[in-house]
Nucleic acid binder design. Structure first.
Length: 438
RNA sequence: GACCCCUUCGUCUAGCGGUUAGGACACAUCCCUUUCACGGAUGCGACACGAGUUCGAUUCUCGUAGGGGUCGCCA
């Protein structure tokens, strides 16, 4: 039988990173087995649902590359995929449960499910069998006085109706799962296989909350992460692929995934390592992807990159191995896109403190003017030559060049900068720096 | 309080009875570098504790402690 799994978020906030990882493991299981991944929106709590939260779910999952086979925007044979539209189905199942003698009502109209009070074992593909003794908890409410159904009930009904074979969800549900199994049986159905995955903790070791850095998927988009890097890092918190190294693609993850390899213990989130993973993926980008990745960030920073993709790629490649996030690109390459860039205070201070600067800049201008080989090698020779004639070390000229060409103390390799800028612009910039000192 | 899950370097982890307990991030030092970075090398650093099983336990069992979770007319 083909595997059917689902991600069933409720649209009450943003897409939480823990939820995204739950979706991810379900998706991996489906893709690995050639099964079906379903997105179901659990919007039974009308007061708390928002349109924005709904969109955050769609956008977040799509951004991560987690596509669903059935669900909102996709349709499918088991719809509707919004619980708010499945009222009549729940009514029918509720009636069935009533007929089975498993429902009774409180004075105010709330309906409770009468537990079987038998020992129940959860067959868990991650943790192994988990046994619960007959419960002493009060019977659980499954319908409110206003007629609205409670999560436990609709969740089970939909898993029956939608033919779920596996339910992969957070470990925080373990203590509820026996109740769900009880419901399945009361409704005359065999429960699915469960798999409870460990929780995501913040660096302090407690459950990730809204305030925590990186709690919402949107924050990664805003911070300039690559989706494949976040995908990669999320996998790593809870599962280790049998692979050399720690960076891998979604495709590799699908090939290597095995639900029984998922870890049993909670993991703390580490933004530093997540950023490192992003750096690794950033290096893998080809020119076209690199430009597409960085362009929005350049524009957001007020840079006009223009339409010369080859030139943009040159500028980005000059710092590709020095940055970790797309949001860092503007500060590293902005001077490539305007002749009117600002000089950092520290740069001006250092230039002014160097009594020889005007003389050396003039020498560099004429030396570079005479250079016929405008390549990294040729420029190296040219700088050495100027240094020799001026009686200084070449190392003393490099900062002057860097400052003049970029206005910054930190940036791409000096020779690479000159190659990217070209002869004319490079020399003009030396002139501009000299003028600033005059 | 009851029940459930978990426990290897600071963090993420490898390990599925015999290993000098391996890797990654972070950190430190050194090297490379005419500039800025990257990179390379080395170092630091862990089996929660106590019993038991065994010729032999990080690994299996039990207990204790610690961490996390659930016990809603939230999902």
């Amino acid at each position: 039988m083909s595997i059917r799994v689902r991600f069933a978020p409720s649209p009450t906030g943003y897409l939480h990173v823990g939820g995204a990882r739950t979706a991810l493991f379900n998706w991996l299981l489906a893709r690995k087995s050639g099964g079906t991944f379903i997105l179901r929106i659990e919007d039974t709590d009308e007061a708390r649902n928002t349109e924005a939260a709904m969109n955050a779910i769609f956008e977040g999952l799509s951004w991560l590359g987690i596509d669903w086979d059935e669900g909102p925007q996709k349709g499918g044979d088991y719809g509707p995929y919004f619980q708010s539209q499945r009222r009549s189905i729940y009514d029918a199942y509720f009636k069935k449960l009533e007929e089975a003698g498993r429902v009774y009502f409180e004075a105010n109209g709330a309906a409770r499910f009468k537990f079987s009070r038998e020992a129940i074992t959860i067959p868990d593909v991650v943790c192994g069998d988990i046994r619960f003794a007959p419960t002493e908890e009060p019977d659980m409410t499954i319908r409110r006085p206003d007629g609205g159904y409670i999560f436990h009930f609709v969740n089970v009904v939909d898993d029956i109706e939608m033919g779920m074979t596996h339910v992969i969800r957070g470990e925080d549900h373990i203590s509820n799962t026996w109740k769900h199994i009880d419901l399945f049986r009361a409704l005359g159905h065999t429960p699915p296989r469960y798999g409870h995955i460990p929780l995501l903790l913040n660096p302090n070791g407690s459950k990730m909350s809204k305030r925590d850095d990186g709690a919402s998927i949107d924050s990664y988009i805003q911070a300039g992460f690559l989706p494949q890097a976040v995908f990669n890092y999320l996998c790593l918190l809870g599962w280790t692929p049998k692979l050399e190294g720690e960076t891998f693609s979604a495709q590799q993850a699908v090939e290597l995934f095995d639900i029984s390899d998922v870890h049993h213990s909670n993991a703390r989130f580490d933004m530093t390592k997540c950023t490192w993973v992003n750096q690794q993926h950033l290096r893998l980008l080809d020119d076209a992807d690199l430009v597409a990745y960085a362009r929005p960030w350049l524009e957001k920073a007020g840079i006009t990159p223009g339409s010369d993709d080859a030139y943009i790629a040159h500028t980005l490649n000059s710092v590709k191995e020095k940055v970790s996030l797309a949001s860092e690109f503007p500060s590293w390459v902005h001077f490539f896109f305007t002749e009117d860039f600002a000089f950092e205070d520290e740069v001006m201070t250092k230039l002014k403190a160097n009594a020889q600067a005007p003389k050396l800049l003039a020498a560099l201008q004429s030396g570079l003017q005479a250079t016929t080989d405008w390549s990294e090698a040729g420029l190296g020779d040219a700088v050495t030559k100027v240094a020799a004639s001026e009686g200084v070390k070449a190392g003393a000229l490099m900062p002057l060049l860097r400052f003049s060409l970029s206005g910054q103390t930190r940036g791409p390799d000096v020779k690479v900068m000159m190659v990217v800028l070209g002869q004319e612009r490079s020399i003009a910039r030396l002139g501009r720096a000299a003028a600033l000192l005059a």
